[in-house]
Structures are given as structure tokens and as C-alpha cells.
Amino acid sequence: MVTMFVAITDRSWFYLLSAAQPDEVNFWQPSGGKAFRALMPGELFLFKLHSPNDYIVGGGVFSHASNVPYRWPGMRSAPRTASSASPTCVTASHIIVATRI
């Protein structure tokens, strides 16, 4: 059986990263201080666009996740787009790293 995790991402952010074609992608997700345990290293981490474009657009091989304090002055909510205005304060987030496939 194959284990995978599907993360929802913003279309503009996807296009920005697609143009850059990085070897590694960092995905930000609010954590509430809890560890990301959905995947083990080597399992698939996939990206799906928000509605109305509900389809998988890419993915990678999960490497690791870290809980980090996330603080960006002026931020009112989680940054969800490539053009997010200056992001108040989220106390913890997952930074999930996957190698592009």
C-alpha cells in the first residue's frame, strides 16, 4: 500500500514554483504546536489546487517536517497565496520539506 498526503495549495503559488522548478519545496501549514505525523520519509506528498481547480498538480517525496514558531509582523491569518500582504502572529507551524518528483 502507498501512503500519501494531499495538501491544498494556492494556484498563484503553484505557478510561481512551477516556473522556478525548485528541487525541493517547503510547504507551510499551521500546526497548533502538534508534530506532523501523516507521512514517513520517502512517502508521497502531493499538491492539489483550491476549488474550482480541484486536481493534483504536483508532488514530491516527503523528507521531513519541523515545528517552528512563525511570526511575521502585520499578518492577520496564515499566508495562503504567493502575493499575501505582509503577513500578525501564528504561534507554530509545520515546515514540510519534499523533494520534487
Rank of each mutant, 00 (worst) to 15 (best):
M1L: 10
M1W: 08
M1K: 10
V2G: 08
T3A: 02
T3W: 03
T3S: 02
T3Y: 00
T3K: 07
M4P: 09
F5N: 05
F5Q: 01
V6C: 10
A7M: 03
T9F: 04
D10T: 04
R11K: 14
R11W: 12
R11A: 10
S12M: 15
S12L: 14
S12D: 15
W13C: 12
Y15W: 13
S18V: 14
S18Y: 14
Q21Y: 11
P22T: 01
D23Q: 04
D23F: 01
E24D: 09
E24M: 13
V25Y: 10
V25Q: 06
N26M: 15
N26T: 14
N26A: 14
F27I: 12
F27V: 08
F27E: 05
W28C: 02
Q29P: 09
Q29H: 12
P30L: 04
P30C: 06
S31T: 04
S31F: 06
S31I: 07
S31E: 10
G32K: 07
G32P: 03
G33F: 05
G33Y: 06
G33D: 06
A35N: 07
A35I: 01
R37P: 08
A38P: 03
L39D: 03
P41Y: 08
G42R: 02
G42P: 01
G42T: 06
G42Y: 00
E43L: 02
L44Q: 02
L44V: 06
F45E: 00
F45W: 03
F45D: 00
F45C: 00
F45M: 05
F47Q: 03
K48V: 05
L49M: 06
H50W: 09
N53I: 11
D54W: 05
D54S: 13
Y55H: 11
Y55N: 10
V57H: 01
V57T: 05
V57K: 00
V57Q: 00
V57I: 07
G60K: 00
G60C: 01
V61L: 06
S63E: 08
H64C: 13
A65W: 09
A65V: 11
A65Y: 06
S66K: 15
N67C: 13
N67A: 12
N67T: 13
V68F: 11
P69M: 06
Y70W: 11
Y70A: 09
R71M: 15
P73H: 03
P73A: 01
P73M: 00
P73L: 00
G74T: 02
R76P: 07
R76N: 07
P79M: 05
P79G: 00
R80S: 03
T81A: 09
S83V: 08
S83R: 11
A85C: 07
A85K: 08
S86Y: 12
C89I: 09
V90C: 12
T91D: 13
T91G: 14
A92E: 15
S93A: 04
S93K: 02
S93C: 05
S93P: 05
I95Y: 14
I95T: 13
I96P: 01
V97F: 11
V97T: 12
A98F: 04
I101M: 01
